[in-house]
Structure formats: structure tokens, C-alpha cells
Design a protein around this nucleic acid. Structure first.
Lengths: 246, 246
DNA sequence: CTAATAGTGTCTCTTAGACAATATATA
DNA sequence: TATATATTGTCTAAGAGACACTATTAG
């Protein structure tokens, strides 16, 4: 089928963001309250239009900065920048009742932040526990997500859950320097399981290049002081960390 | 940022297809010769515009049928339908010199087909060995792909290589009934390595639900007749098949 | 002291990988 | 017969999971 630029159907293209963090042992997603129809009053994922001269990843990074003040890792290579990657694209013809909108969803993994309302126009942004947004059982209608955002969030959470199995991506949920116990609690929150602290310690410290000792210790968690590490260059974890119960 | 439908920038949205198969022990991709500018005469991935009332996956399935006559597995649940999944979306502002085009790439894994030109408008479609399209070393200019299609193909090949590690997706490269040896040759072609036939046999037949014996035998490959299997329902392979050399 | 977390060691069981040996077809 | 592929079995080394034990802080 040859291109015919004069008769292509016009689409609006947006980016939506699944921004995940771990707060108080729970996996949370950033949500914003919709102030207008459709779905007025419901929670939605942050997002917005891709500009005419803008790359998709740039649009996602820009929206992220606007909503949270977060920088991505690409721009600031070492200091706890958030991880950003493309997730998937959603283009059901009726997903937005107003017009044909194709949304390129992105996944952001961020360390715990003090408060989500750093940016300008996100007056009612909030970290919501993923369990409450996706709980198939008894979701309060007020906690339902607008549009197809529950599907997008579900896909993003599943991506995060599977990616930390075989990569060092879980460190993106931690501050620049962290302990083995903090990293383990990330896995436990994301997977919703309990891991044996001793076997976990042996696994992550025994994988070359996965963690780099940084010298100091901390007693943030109480108990015996723990060594501080930062994420090593090894992005591949082989053999992978095995998710229990699967 | 509130929606303002009256001033969103208009985009064209296309689907591009990375259609992979295994022919004569080599991983091959479906390519079409471009008949017009830009990139006239170069190979490109098949694809086309998403229609105004069409879902992304439907557009990909339609283009696939037009170019190859292949049906996807969703429509025909058991008989060697091709596997189709969304791959990623490419939206660099200058990826198409004529206009702003966002392309939602899809990955198709298909059994070996007699000839690629089953459809109507794909007069110059051809299976090309992936090695020659992506060979970083000495790629003939005539074998370069148009637009950013080399990047898309690379992403698709990498997706296929990693997904067969932990899923039964390799069976999508085989006919409906296949032998353990044929499945092993798929892994060998996709990964570009040699696998031990005995350990491979033990692994795949020892994983419950991965392969279902279908009763007959075949001697397609010469040698002792091999049992025929079809893909089992178990889509998850845990622990995964380990890719050597990594 | 107790409670909490960090970290090491040890045991068992499963499995990957190497490879010997046997089975059954074609040329 | 030789040759090719299929299939089973055996051995070893590595790693996961269970868990005893020690180390070091706070209260």
C-alpha cells in the first residue's frame, strides 16, 4: 500500500505515564484527578499531547518533569534519576469518546518522593497503592481509573514485575545509595511476596557487577548497620531472580 | 494539561510489521521493495496506515493478511496461525521526511511459508535472512532498510530471541505438529547457536504442559522417526531455557 | 537485657551441561 | 553396511531454598 499523504486519517497522539514507586512497603502509582469530562472526578494516569516536533520519549520525560519534577536517568547519569521506558501503545478507536487518540504509554520507576505535587498544573496528583487501583475484587467506583488506564496500569505493573527478575531495575526504586535490605523490600513490595533475607543477600551480592559497595553504612532501618551499595553496571541478572509462587 | 481537541497536532499513524520465520536454518524477515521515494529501491518492512475506525492490532492483522495471506492465532485458535504481538512505537519527528508519522510496530512469528507473495499488492516481497539485513559488518548498501526499519527489525529480533527463553513461543515458528528436533532447530536459528539435542529433548519434554504428544511420528528430517507434538497450553517456561554464551 | 536487622555458613534437592549408549530410519 | 537423527541414562557442578548461627545496632 503506497503512502498517500493527502488522505491519511488524522490522529491525536498522547503519552500516558505509569509512574511507579514503593511507599511504606506498597507499590504505588501516580494518579491525577480529572477535572473535566469525560470521567470527571475519576483518577487518571498523567499524560498529555505529543508536540509537533517532539520525540515520544522526550514528550514522556517532559510530562514527567511537569507532573513530578523528576528527571530521567538519561539526562543525569548517576544520581537516582528515574528510569523511563516505553511500555505499549493503546489505540482502540473508542478509547476516548471525543476523538481518535492513540496513546503511547511509558513506564517510569522512581524512588520514593516526598510529595507528588511538585509541578505546576498537577494540583490533585497523588500516589495511590496499585492494589487499590487494580483490586479485581472490591474496587470502590471512586478508585476506578478513567479511560483504559486500568489496563495500561496493569500492563505497566506486570512489566515492572517481570523486568526486575532479570535486570537490576529494582534499584531504580531506591535512592542512589541503598542497602541490600532496602532492595529486598522493593522486590517484596513489587511482587507482593516475602523473600528470605539471607538467600536474597547471597544472590545479589554474589552476582558480579550487580551491586557496587560504596563504603559507608547506614542504620536507617534499625538493627545492625548495613553496607551501602549503588547499582552496578550489570543490567542483566543471569540466572534471574526467581519470583516465588509462579 | 487539559485536552483541547481543537489544537492537537495531527499525526499519521501506521503499523509496521516485523514478520519472522525460520527458513533453511536461518532467521528471516519479510521485506518489501520500495517502489517510490523516499528510499526508492531499498527494502522496507511491510506496513501501512491505520484506518480511521480500526484498532492497532486489527490493522496489523489486516496488513499481514494483505501481504502474506497469513491468519493470526486469535482468529484460528489451533492450526498454525501466526503469533502477533505489539512490539514498540517509533515516533521520531524526522523518521519520515514527508510528514509526522508515528509507527506502531508489531512482531509476527510465522511458520515457514512456501512463498511470500500470496497477497495482492506485495509484488516484490521477499524473505531476507536477518543476518544480512542487520550485519553490522559488511552490509551491502542495497540490503539496507529504509527509514528506521533496521532499528525496528533489530528490536523485533531481540524480542523474539528473549521471549523464546521463557515461553513456548518458538512453536509459532513451527507447523501445527512438529518434532523436538524441529523445535530445537528453531532455537538454534533464532539464537544462532548450537544446542545439545539430548539436553534440549530432556528439557522440553520434561516441562509439564509445554509439549503435547499427538501420536504419530515422522521422518521428515531423516534418521530415526521422531514423535510429533503440538504446543501445549503452558505459555510460561519456568525455569527458562537458558541461552548459551550470555 | 530484648528486639530488630545484617550477614555467613551449611545442608539438600533440583537442574543445566557434558557425554555414553541405544534405537530406528535412509542410502 | 555407513550415516543421520531420536531418545534414554549417567555423572558432575552450580544454584535455589531452608534454616542455624553470629554480629551489631537501638531501646
Amino acid at each position: 500500500m503506497p503512502y498517500d499523504p493527502s488522505e491519511f486519517p488524522p490522529f491525536a497522539v498522547t503519552v500516558d505515564l505509569v509512574v511507579l514507586t514503593v511507599r511504606r512497603h506498597a507499590l504505588c502509582a501516580l494518579t491525577v484527578r480529572r477535572g473535566e469530562e469525560p470521567y470527571r472526578g475519576l483518577w487518571a494516569l498523567p499524560g498529555g499531547f505529543v508536540r509537533a516536533d517532539e520525540d515520544l520519549a522526550s514528550a514522556a520525560a517532559r510530562e514527567l518533569a511537569e507532573e513530578t519534577g523528576l528527571r530521567t536517568q538519561d539526562s543525569d547519569s548517576r544520581h537516582a534519576g528515574a528510569h523511563l521506558e516505553q511500555l505499549a501503545t493503546y489505540g482502540d478507536p473508542v478509547r476516548d469518546p471525543r476523538m481518535r487518540v492513540v496513546s503511547v504509554a511509558h513506564l517510569v520507576l522512581a524512588p520514593d518522593l516526598p510529595a507528588p505535587t511538585a509541578g505546576g498544573d498537577a494540583g490533585s496528583a497523588q500516589w495511590m497503592p496499585v492494589r487499590r487501583l487494580l483490586g479485581a475484587t472490591d474496587a470502590t467506583p471512586a478508585e476506578r481509573l478513567a479511560f483504559d488506564h486500568a489496563t495500561i496500569l496493569d500492563d505497566g505493573v506486570e512489566r515492572a514485575r517481570s523486568k526486575i527478575e532479570y535486570s537490576s531495575l529494582a534499584a531504580a526504586f531506591c535512592p542512589a545509595e541503598f542497602t541490600v535490605g532496602e532492595l529486598r523490600r522493593v522486590y517484596e513490595a513489587v511482587w507482593g511476596v516475602a523473600l528470605d533475607p539471607r538467600n536474597f543477600h547471597r544472590k545479589v551480592t554474589g552476582t558480579p557487577g550487580f551491586l557496587v559497595p560504596v563504603g559507608g553504612t547506614t542504620t536507617r532501618q534499625g538493627g545492625r548497620p548495613a553496607q551501602l551499595f549503588r547499582a552496578g553496571g550489570a543490567s542483566a541478572l543471569n540466572p534471574p531472580m526467581l519470583r516465588p509462587d509462579v
